[in-house]
Write a protein that binds this DNA or RNA. Sequence first.
DNA 1: ATATAATCTTTCCAGTGTCAAGATTGAAAG
DNA 2: CTTTCAATCTTGACACTGGAAAGATTATAT
Lengths: 195, 195
Amino acid sequence: MEKPYHHGNLKNELLEAGIRLINQEGEESFSLRKVAALCGVSHAAPYSHFQNKDDLLREMQSYVTTQFMETLEETVRTTARLGDAEQLVQIGKSYVLFFLHHPQYFPFLFSQPCMTIDLSLNGTGKEDFPPYRLFSDIARRALTKMGYPESGMQDAILSMWALVHGLSSIVTMKHVRYDQDWELKIEDLIRNTRG
Amino acid sequence: MEKPYHHGNLKNELLEAGIRLINQEGEESFSLRKVAALCGVSHAAPYSHFQNKDDLLREMQSYVTTQFMETLEETVRTTARLGDAEQLVQIGKSYVLFFLHHPQYFPFLFSQPCMTIDLSLNGTGKEDFPPYRLFSDIARRALTKMGYPESGMQDAILSMWALVHGLSSIVTMKHVRYDQDWELKIEDLIRNTRG
DNA sequence: ATATAATCTTTCCAGTGTCAAGATTGAAAG
DNA sequence: CTTTCAATCTTGACACTGGAAAGATTATAT
């Protein structure tokens, strides 16, 4: 069983091995050569599939963002019957839990300028970071049904997102001590906060 | 005018040159050797004052945290006459503005596990990240004066801090487009959100 | 079967963090 | 004032990193 010269599925394996590395050791000790070694391939092989290290990291971010979106969309589906306001709470919770379960993903996704979010008034939102866009859509629908005025809509959404995103940031800090159940706490905090 | 063999004030200059580097080029392209070169000193000279690169970075974080605290404490002083609730809003605004004005500081301070925050019930808070502790103290006083029950106090503080911290995170993302005045918006958002 | 393009390896280079050995100097002790 | 010593700084080395260049191998199209 000789190892073939051509790997066959190297690009995907590089992406997944890279993400595994991020999860285990964090962004700091990440290196192209380690990822190549994990795939049993020479240190320059990745350059056939990625322009450079940053390109690999960007595609990894995109890969993780897709996972993130799938998690959120799953939550959208399973909470469809709960009503808009409660669904919004659950999306927020799902958002924070994703990072609670994968703490390394938060700095990985947000330290670098990986995403675009257009908060300008004439922005279409088409190019926005998909998780933000999903949260924003659900929030807008919930607020609209609650009779929230369109004038303060974007601000309200922004402040709710800031809460959820800030909680994610806090929950993923290594040196934050908390002796209770984050999952319960997160839900409480989101539910009891109104923009 | 020969350069003396002994620099005289190298430790402080390394810290300040390092922080200048962070502000200009960000954390990514930061290197010990560049900092040494900026101080006109050999690449191994920093090892007389810091154990290693991480040690230098930690002291830089501590230095920046002190600046941050001075900014917040200045705000505490200048808003003392405004009443507790309004003072809390201004502290929150000051928190976010600090990072709006120094965007590189946010990932620099919070990507790595630089700080301790004890949210457990029996925590004294003595070892907490000072800016969080200051915010927490002001918030507790304001909420108490407003008759907020002690039972939900920590949660309320946490959710307000999450908002402020999350806004800081959002405001410092390079690819967030916003065509209006962040300063006004930040104040609005904090003022109109209630835990 | 041959040519071409894609994929992978090898080799090299500059830059990095870190360590060890030595050079220079300020400050304390005689 | 001289000697000693510890602090500070330099030089040189090492392993590791990202990246470029050139060549080897193999799949695919013609």
